[in-house]
Amino acid sequence: MPRLNPKQPTQPPERGQILDREEYIEQAHLFELLHEQAGGQFPIQDLLEQLRHEVLATTRLPMAMEYMLTEVRHSGLLGPAMRQLAHYFTPFQTYLIDQSELDTGRFMMNTAFQIMRAEAEYRVETATPAGMFFYQFEVLCRNRLSYDRGLTAMSGDPIFDDRWSRWILGLRAQIGLVDFADLVFLVSEDYRKKLSAAGKPTEDKGPFLFGEKEGRIALANRRKDPLYLFSALQRHLGYPAVPKPEPAETTQELIPQMARRIERLEARIQLMEEERRASLDITKFYEQNKHRLNLPE
């Protein structure tokens, strides 16, 4: 796992504000449309030009799209424009787009739009800080993104208060050294109640950010794959699941391949029949006569 980079800022990035419900509804609609069409034959600037007329004009999203469209035409990138719109897009959204625009190509922009669509839909449904934390952290785990830069971006989300931001920033030095389920359990109400029942002080512990149920589920998933913890939280507490990449459609490529193989088989069967009838003329395979052949490429 990536280690803490001492050059990374210890303070969270610029924090925006929680938007109105209508803004998140239109964001989810935009990201869904971009997910369906990104990676096709149309460049991103053409998609933004077309889709800006489909979002609700009474929200601030059309103005944000205008700025993004100008930046894409200038630099070809979405990330710098979203970074300048920190009052509208969260740092985690900007981080996902930045990672999708890297030359390595491991994290695709189509996947980023799918993740951002599900996140915006969760915000519409009265998201909680705990649910948003588990969702965003699962995104980092499943897509093998940098914990250091990813947690820094998460700490600037407006859904997290100062206590949450400080704790998330502190995770950068603990991920990979301490079991993730233990980290969750130690800041849960279940742990606080166990300390109180044992007569131990709780003033120097915490902050207790997660509820009692989250603590119990984390305790039951110690020393296990964190994905099992995320799955249990989704089953019992209704936390959102991270969209999984859809398998690539191979049917359109498979049919032409099968057609070429059938043509080769027919040519071979024809040669075998001519040889069996002793009527095979091998002179047509000579270099000067190869133009007479009608074999598939």
Rank of each mutant, 00 (worst) to 15 (best):
H53Y: 14
H53I: 10
H53K: 02
E54Y: 08
E54T: 15
A57P: 04
A57D: 04
T58V: 02
T59F: 09
R60K: 01
P62I: 05
P62Y: 01
M63T: 08
A64D: 05
A64F: 05
A64H: 13
M65W: 02
M65G: 03
E66S: 10
E66H: 09
M68R: 06
L69F: 05
V72E: 04
V72Q: 03
R73I: 00
H74L: 09
S75M: 01
S75D: 06
L77Q: 15
L78W: 11
G79V: 05
P80C: 09
M82N: 08
R83K: 09
Q84Y: 12
A86S: 13
H87M: 02
Y88T: 01
F89G: 09
F89Q: 13
T90R: 11
T90K: 03
P91C: 00
P91A: 01
F92A: 10
Q93M: 08
Q93I: 01
Q93K: 06
T94I: 00
Y95N: 10
L96Y: 09
L96V: 12
I97Q: 08
D98T: 15
E101Q: 08
L102D: 07
D103V: 01
G105R: 06
R106T: 04
R106I: 02
F107E: 08
F107S: 03
F107I: 04
M109D: 10
A112R: 03
A112C: 08
A112F: 03
I115L: 15
A118S: 12
A118C: 05
E119P: 04
E119A: 14
A120V: 14
A120C: 15
E121A: 15
R123Q: 15
V124K: 12
V124M: 15
T126V: 12
T126P: 04
T128N: 12
T128K: 15
T128L: 14
A130F: 05
A130D: 12
F133K: 12
F134E: 12
F137N: 13
E138D: 14
E138I: 04
V139H: 02
V139M: 12
L140K: 08
L140D: 05
C141V: 11
N143W: 10
L145W: 00
L145C: 05
S146C: 15
Y147V: 13
Y147M: 15
L151R: 15
L151G: 14
L151H: 13
L151W: 14
T152N: 12
A153E: 12
G156K: 01
G156P: 08
G156L: 04
D157F: 09
P158N: 09
F160E: 02
F160I: 04
F160K: 06
D161H: 07
R163E: 10
W164K: 07
W164C: 06
S165D: 02
W167E: 13
L169E: 01
L169C: 01
